[in-house]
Design a protein around this nucleic acid. Sequence first.
DNA 1: AATCAGGAA
Length: 656
Amino acid sequence: MNKHKRLKKSFKPTFSKFGGSLPIFSHKDAITAALAEPSSGLIICGQTGCGKTTQVPKYILEAGLSSSKMIAVTQPRRVAAVTIAQRVAHELGSSCGQTVGYSVRFDKRVSDDTKICYLTDGMLLREAILDPTLSKFGVIILDEVHERTVSTDVLMAIVKKLRETRDLKVIVMSATIDIPKISEYFGIDKVVSVKGRTYPVEIYNLKQPEGNYVDNAMISILQTHLEHPEGDILCFLTGQEDIEDLQSLLEEKIELGKHPDYNMAPLVVVPLYANLPNHLQLRAFEKCEGRKVILATNIAETSVTINGIRYIIDSGLCKMKSFQTTTGVDTLKITAISKNSATQRSGRAGREAPGKCFRLYTEEIYDEMSDSTPPEIFRTNLSRVIIQLKAMGIKDVSDFDFIDKPSKQLYINAFKELNDLRCLDADANLNELGRKMSIIPTEPVYSKLLIHSTKTEYKNISKDIVIIVAMLSVENIFYAPRNFQRKAERKHKKFFVLDSDHLTLLNVYNYYIKNKGNSGFCKENFINEKSLKKATQISNQLLGYLKTLSQKSDGTVEETKAEVINELDMIAKEADENYDRNQLITKCLYEGLPLNTYQCHENIYRSTKTHEECNIHPTSVLFNKFPTYVVCSEIIITSKKYMRFCTDISKVYVKD
DNA sequence: AATCAGGAA
């Protein structure tokens, strides 16, 4: 007790002013009382800004409710886990990694003294694969549950099950009022509701459903700018293309507005989407001359928060990925958002002061929207989830107790894929390959390819496959801003390896390493530096896992694989190495990616297995080249069914 | 001659 009094005294004054008025404070006793018993549970319902994420773990710690074990707090996003941990550590007057720490991919600050650990939901899930009882933790706090990420859904089920077998306390935190469902699922009847700290936002709807939404957005933005007092504008659109279109439209009008007859007040247009290079993303957060209008994708709905926003323009649309069970392919389609999303978007205007939200859709359209976005687990390829569950020793995964159970068809598709990958035994349990795959943090298709590449027949190309997989997992290596499109494409072409997107990615990476990760090199060639940095981290991590997996039972490491690690630095020197090596990589891609082989007949590609038609993606180096046989690593339906990332395998293809 | 939601391990 004494100790905690001391901790309280060391609150920094900057925080005590803010913290003192947190709505969560008045619920402290109720929260600690609810968690007194072993295996007790609590649901906390509260909007962002009520202080639940930062304060509740401290209450638990102060009251000694986690015995000597750690308190885990999960977050859907890594930045959130890191920044919240740093902040709570600061509030307790200690540095991050002592009493309060965090654990996210590539970054971990945890010590023997750590009592509160913020981690991403994906990270806690990994812990559960290594230790299915999560024995380190006495209390698990699942935060932002309303976002319903796949990892959160899996964790909810795991935690629910663990509470039946050992003393584990659980707190489920959610911003929405779908509390009865959570309450019934966990069998927890204690609920604390906390008010948020937000200001009212006036909502305006479109009167008539007319015009396209990019034009409507432009008109609304200009009207808001001309008729409303200061405060920045945030406009939600669906993707990069809309954003760039609207940006050009607005900039034209702004140019006109500069004419002395109009003398329009300054307005600055700032795009914001995930694939934008870092230095351009930052512009959304910087102060600027005059009013700022940010044109954003869904990234601004939950992932980033921008200060100074008073006006929202909401298209009511977003792009959503869905797994199509009929074809087993992902689709990415423009979809109407849900009522919850609409509320979340409008709320972005009321964080600091009262705001206004202009919805580019009628009230009737709003009424027809679904209440909430379908959970991700309904829309995803389940193969990775199944491998994870099997790795935790759960046998009957299709009966697994999810809060919302995915359809049987999703399971059937996933099992089909896992069978094709040959990672299950006759009883549908993981075989040796499957167990190895469960350790590697990539999509099953890629973990299979990685393990496949370590076969001796491929000599030492494993490290190249690792790089290719790392590059595929970051996407958007090449960046082409609208104003520099031609120039960017010319620069990009220099890196093209003419018969393969995969070898092209490898080539870019090798040049990047050769230039020692130089920022100038990236900028000059319109290459996304952020992506390449991440690819470097991923390939190092993947190499590490492959090394562990290749360890023999006597603990020694097979020589070839150990060599792989040391060779990473040498890559640059052998970047232009010969044709034979590329041939081996091509062969490995062909044999390790058995799902997607396509044959060309009169410029039309059909699957060699199902004979279904597919097109080469316009961004591929093979676009309009029509080699006879190609293998691809990703298929997605947008406007058409596309193969992204293809390699010409005509020279190595063997007919069945 | 056309494309590119967001997150995580």
